[in-house]
Design a protein around this nucleic acid. Sequence first.
DNA 1: GCGGATCAC
DNA 2: TATGGTGATCCGC
Length: 634
Amino acid sequence: MASGSTSSNGPDHASLRHSLLGPSLLKAGQDQVDQQKVGEVIYNASKGSKFFKHEEKRDEQLTKRIEVILRRKRELEALDLTSELKRTDEQITALEASRDLSQYIVHVDCDAFYASVEELDRPELKEGIFFNCTTKSGYLLILVVPMAVGSGVLTTCNYKAREFGVRSGMAGYIAKQLCPQLVFLPLSFDKYTQKAEEIREVLARYDERYEAGSCDEAFLNITGYMEEHPDMTPDQITEQIRAEVFEKAKISVSAGIAPNARRILNTREAVVSFMTPLPVRKVNGVGRVFERELQAIGVHTWGDIYPLRGLLQRLFSEKLASFLLNCHLGLGRTRVQPVEEYERKSVGTERTFKDLEGGEKLKEKLRATAVELEKDLKRAGSAGRTVNLKVKLHSYEVLNRQRALTRPIHSADDLYNYSLPLLQALETEFKPLRLRLMGLRMTSLVSTTKSTKMQEFFKNAVVTGKRKREDNEGEWEVWPEEEFQQIKAASGEKEEDILLLSQHDQLDEEVVEGEERGAATENTIGPNAKPSEEVPQQVEKWSCPICLRSLPADDALFNEHVDFCLSRETIKEAARGPSPEPERAKQVQQRPQSQGSNKVGRPSDKRRKGSGKGKSTGNEESNTMRQYFVKAND
DNA sequence: GCGGATCAC
DNA sequence: TATGGTGATCCGC
């Protein structure tokens, strides 16, 4: 145990203890909880575990980072910052000018949603709990069984459980220690989504373009509703929404006006006076880590930002500085959009399991992961051009390895074959590789359903193209481009995506390094390298494991091509000289990536929530502010 | 483009 | 006995 040496964190691990309390410290229902005592239980229950050691390491790392920040702050304070100050004040003026107080946006959030649904669904939980207490006043005393949903790690818990210090995100066995009588229920998502639908039917009556977040929250722009009901105040409407949701779905929700937070007027003064005493952690985007960093420089509430405004740009990144300024001013997103209009950016799956080790077993797990991801991709109607392997070592250290491909893939076989080299590189990097989690995620997505027109075009391009070539060779040169443009215009697709789909037949010089060859060849050649039969619109193709090109699904041709690629690799290999596996893995990682393009991108925050889809890239409007809403409180 | 890190729910 | 899954963003290379 590292109990003896205490790092700069102090002898009592104060910040670690705080961190171990978990991310949902400020959730409702904990007012009367003795956090000190809860922290003690958690700390003692965790102490000595691998999880604890990992948290300890991360905490020390953060402590060091904070020391750097503090040092920089001291250096800055010795400088003359009048020009910084002036620039910041100009920025504030500009932000003030952009302030939009014309919209009335309501944030609806279900209270302990899963737990509430379960309580509705299980009257037996309430029997014997409701009982008539013959008090003189005749009140009905209601006791509720402390209950949590989820196993291993709690997804949520009811308010009774929260009285014991039980929280979502908490390990189940710790919750049991805090509350021995806690009842655990398994998750049943079908029930929750069904209930969410009932609620959304109500919400749609107030704003048909409401924005559903995860299944237990939503944003509504009630500005239009207010115009139709000039006799009602925003507060009355909000209350009416809550009442109607409860009436129809029997679920209680919190609702507050956003981004001006709750029940405050749409005036600048009201907004600012709300923000000034508000703890930084209450705002979306400030978590445990950022909270500590801000605390270290003396920022506890959003009002504390102002005296430091001249330092922000020098202390943090440009984006972060701007975010802090926006929060201080109480500025935020004022637009609400249906989730359907957001474009998903990735699809992935991951699973935790008992520690696993050994090449065969890990391969088996990778195969299973690929099969899962194939299903998810199919559901999402997506294929991806970048595959990302995520693993968590037995020590809880998380590693990601990703690789861009030359074409989108979606089949389990492709997913497996292209991610296996990544896994094998890790196996040589960490010997032995012992995992507690594995995941696969695809990014750089293209749609396999929405672009039906495009796919049919390419299918026809092959079939009709050949026929036309026989009929009349002259026309062959001309018509594809014309029709290409027509379909592009008709389908409204981005050219980028179209090119991706047409890339199959190009042979570019960007041949992948040979590091994955040995692994891929034993699994990809032959009947195992299945075509992507799940997407009937697509022309049947097999993937060459060496050059990633897509090839006609023909045994003889395919084998011939792979042989060719293999010999090419052998030649390159010979020219390069012998290079052991790890070395080659490194070469791939260190491939020159000069693009310093990450410089001054306009801050256009695309942060989305929960199951949400990514924000559409189409609109680069003036919505430059990081979205924030005050975290729900009651 | 890649990998680590943070965050929300 | 043994701390989750999905998706997004940002930063620094």
